[in-house]
Each structure stands twice: as structure tokens, then as C-alpha cells.
Design a protein around this nucleic acid. Structure first.
Lengths: 253, 253
DNA sequence: CGCACGTTTGATTACCGTCAAGGTATGTGG
DNA sequence: CCACATACCTTGACGGTAATCAAACGTGCG
């Protein structure tokens, strides 16, 4: 169990993220901190949960990256989403008692456990938190539909560009300062599985983008050279920066 | 405003859907019915909401089909989801004050309005409802990730087959009885925009499926001839039939 | 050092897109 | 009642983006 602390000391990344969107009451803060249980470490490349495995809890990402994916009959894989600090993950286990996707650590991770029943209590007792979680889920759903659009209707360069822009936008929520260079812990095979491309074609697409002066690469570090240009080229919309909370009742007391 | 009725008479399709997953208390039932406001009719092909239009309310589908879509710079379109009676739609307007997608009626529709502030009150006062809406949103998110997987990693036949299986599964939730034939109000261009294919290729794929004895068509009516075979062929999983509610506190009183 | 893993490059193939045109059904107005 | 328009479906020919197959090249690590 994490140390409850209304003072902002050693708080969960979820509490920090939520208070980024909404000023939490002390009761809400405490209820959130109390809901999370023990922490777990997951080494890069290791699975946290396997698809179709029975599960009764969610996880909060405290540190590191993960992704959720599914495997196909033919051995192929589709990566559905990436998860960053402050994300509530394994949400599909809410709707069923089995995991719908596999959760895998991309880099070394720390996550904390949040049992489904605790989430139920949170919704029942702290309705504003429930509403905020719903709003975040809605935003993430739109971000996923952007990915769907990219895969369904865009060519390889546009797909890769939108992914890079999206990762950058999401990292800015947590990182705070200016982010124009990202440390990509992903292999080109991972990126291909996220974009519906093969690793071979991802490689060719990276080189093409370099040739066109869109990005530069050095090892795992990647720099976006002309962000406004890429945004215009892809029609990218940042879904992470702002989330409306004006529709929530101001205070429950 | 819909007639509040704990007796099950003239209830909103949303209330009916939720009570399909969870036995509602009278207070919950009443709060749900009170949240919805006036009804609107939308003729087939007409838009209900346009993307990026300011909006402060959601909608509940009472009758008919709609879809949400986005337009691309180049004139292309991606259909993201289809919406059926009992669905809460326009959810992206919760996270922002503008619509993220265009909502268009596929067949003649009746929807009722649900202002964001009413939803906020529902979350605050009826936490179990909030939790249930969250669970449904999680299930729909998984259904969308199934579509993502189909578009990213499957060929045209498998994509079309999963779409047909998914529509059938979703209709069964509302229809109740046995559904093995569906009346498709969609054009082949619509289906292509949902699957990331052109209408020309959708047509070829339909004919190929007929030739292989997977489906039969007569006008708009479509029959799935070997559902177990198609399920095995595509790895389809029904995301609509069951949703767990065991994690919600039994009663709030 | 050698192995595993990831990146890069080349040659060939195939699935699906594009372009074009004809066919069918439904509806409307003269 | 028929000419005509419109929307949708169907089919053919051709071309291109990305997949597949194969192999070389780096690079970090035990």
C-alpha cells in the first residue's frame, strides 16, 4: 500500500495525473491512495499479464513504459496501445474476469496493483473520481481511434509520423518541460506491430523520413525536426494535453 | 424528458441495456430516466453531430443505427464504430468541449439527449451506474481494438468476416432471440471505410465469401452460413454478450 | 570471442488500390 | 406509363505499396 499523503509527497502517479486535470479534495486524494496496493517490478521485455489469464485487478503505471498486445492465430501480433506513468491499465479485466490483452513491459517498469473491488468502492464513494476516470477513458478511446484511422487510411510514412507525434504528446503530459527528442525503447518490430507494418518496411520508412529531413536518429534517440510540418502532413491532433472536467459537479462534500 | 417508470414501461433503451447487466435499484432507475432529455429523429444518411463542432451533450440511441467517423485531408473517411440501440454515444465530447467525430445515422434513428452535466450528476450520485458505464466503455474499447487488429493484421476476407460477426453479436444483445440473418443498412462504401478497404475491393471480397460458401446475400439481407467456421477462421471473440459487474459494491442504499 | 538480437539492404511477389465502364434497382417527373 | 436520373453494385485491366524471402551488417553482452 502506498503511503497516503495529501501533501503531495510520494504519491501515486495516478493521483498526480488526476490532480493535473482536477483539483482533488483531501478525501478524494486519500481514497485514491488507499485503493492501490503493493508495487511490482517488471523487467523490460517481461509480461505483466497474459491474455485470457484470469485476473481480478488493474495496475497503475508508476514508472516505465508498457504495451498491450494480442497474438494472432498465424503468429502475428498487434500492439494496441502504449502505457505511460499515470495510466490505469488492464482495464479490460473490469468487463470480464479474464485479461483481453497481454501487458508487456517495454522498459523496466514499476506498477502498483489496484483490485477491481477497490475500483468499485472508488466509483461508489468518490463519484467525481469515477467521472474523471471515465473522461480519461474517453480520451484514450479517441486516441486509439486515431491510430485506427492511421492504419486504415494512411500510408506508412504518415502512420509512423502520427505514432511519433502521439508518443511525444503523451510524454509531455508527464514530463512537464519541452520534449522534442524521445528515447525510443521500442524495436522496429514493435513499431511495425503497432502500425500494421512489417519490421522491414518500418526500417525503410524510417530511412525515407530521414532522407526527407523529417526526423534524425542516433541510436535509440530520435528527434522530430519539423513538428508543425509533420502535424500538417498527418492531420495529427493532440488528445492528451487537455481533458475537460467542467461537467463534473464542483464538490461532493 | 422520458417518462420515468420503474415498471419497465416506455423506458430508455439505455436503462434497459444497463438492467440487462445489473439489477438496478428504483433510485438508480429513476435517476437514469431523469437524466435524459428530449428525443430527436435523424433520417438515414443525415448527420447528428459534425466533428469539431462545439457540443455539451451526449446521446442515447433509442432506435436505429448510427456510425461515428472522421474525414481525412485527402477526402478519405474512416468509420470508427457503429452504434446500436442502448448505446451511449458522443462520449468523446466528455473529454473536450468539441466533438471528436462525426455521428451519422445509417438508418432512420431516434436518439435522446443527455447533457454532460446530467452525466456528471449521475456519476456523483449513482456511483454504481458510473462503474457500469465504465465497464461498458472498457468492453467497447476492446471491441474497437479487435477492429484495429483486424485492419492492422488481417486480409480483406478476415476483416469483413469479423465485422459481420461483430455486428451479429451486438444485435443479439438488443434483439434477444436467435439472429443468424442481418439486414445490412450499410453500403459497400461504408463497409470499406470501416475496414480500411475500397468499395471495389469490398465487393470482390463479398463475392469471394459467397463463392466459398461463407455467406449468402439477397438484397440487403445477409446470412452467415457457417458461423463456427468463420469464428475459427478469424479468431473472433464476442465482446458484447457478457459484462462483469461483480466488482461493483452490491448496493449503495 | 562468439552468440543473440536488432538493423539494413536487395530481389521478388501479392494484395489491394486506382481507373474505367457497364449493370441494376429505385424513384421522380412529364 | 415511360424516360430519365441517381445511387449502388459489379466487373475488368493495370499499377503501386507493402509483404515476403533472404542475407549481410552492427552492436551489446555473457
Amino acid at each position: 500500500m502506498m503511503l497516503a499523503s495529501p501533501l503531495g509527497f510520494r504519491r501515486s502517479a495516478l493521483t498526480r495525473r488526476l490532480s493535473h486535470y482536477l483539483t482533488l479534495t483531501e478525501a478524494e486524494d486519500r481514497a485514491l491512495e488507499a485503493a492501490e496496493e503493493r508495487e511490482r517490478r517488471v523487467a523490460a521485455g517481461e509480461p505483466l499479464v497474459e491474455a485470457s489469464q484470469p485476473i481480478d485487478r488493474l495496475f497503475v503505471v508508476q514508472h516505465g513504459w508498457l504495451h498491450s498486445s494480442v497474438r494472432l492465430r498465424d503468429g502475428g501480433r498487434q500492439i494496441l496501445r502504449f502505457h505511460y506513468p499515470g495510466d490505469l491499465i488492464g482495464v479490460s479485466s473490469i468487463a470480464w474476469s479474464q485479461a483481453a490483452t497481454t501487458l508487456t513491459a517495454v522498459s523496466d517498469c514499476i506498477v502498483s496493483e489496484l483490485p477491481k473491488t477497490q475500483l468499485g468502492r472508488l466509483f461508489a464513494a468518490q463519484g467525481r473520481i469515477g467521472g474523471l476516470l471515465y473522461a480519461i477513458a474517453a480520451a484514450e478511446s479517441v486516441a486509439m481511434s486515431d491510430r485506427l484511422t492511421a492504419i486504415g487510411r494512411m500510408n506508412a510514412i504518415q502512420r509512423l509520423a502520427t505514432l511519433l507525434l502521439d508518443i511525444t504528446a503523451r510524454l509531455r503530459v508527464t514530463a512537464g518541460g519541452v520534449v522534442d527528442t524521445i528515447e525510443l525503447p521500442l524495436t522496429q518490430a514493435d513499431i511495425g506491430d503497432a502500425l500494421g507494418l512489417t519490421k522491414v518496411h518500418v526500417n525503410r520508412t524510417f530511412r525515407e523520413m530521414e532522407k526527407r529531413g523529417m526526423i534524425s536518429r542516433a541510436g535509440r534517440r530520435l528527434k522530430i525536426l519539423d513538428e508543425p510540418g509533420l502535424i500538417d502532413f498527418t492531420g495529427f491532433v493532440d488528445r492528451h494535453a487537455v481533458i475537460a472536467t467542467d461537467w463534473l459537479p464542483p464538490l461532493l462534500g
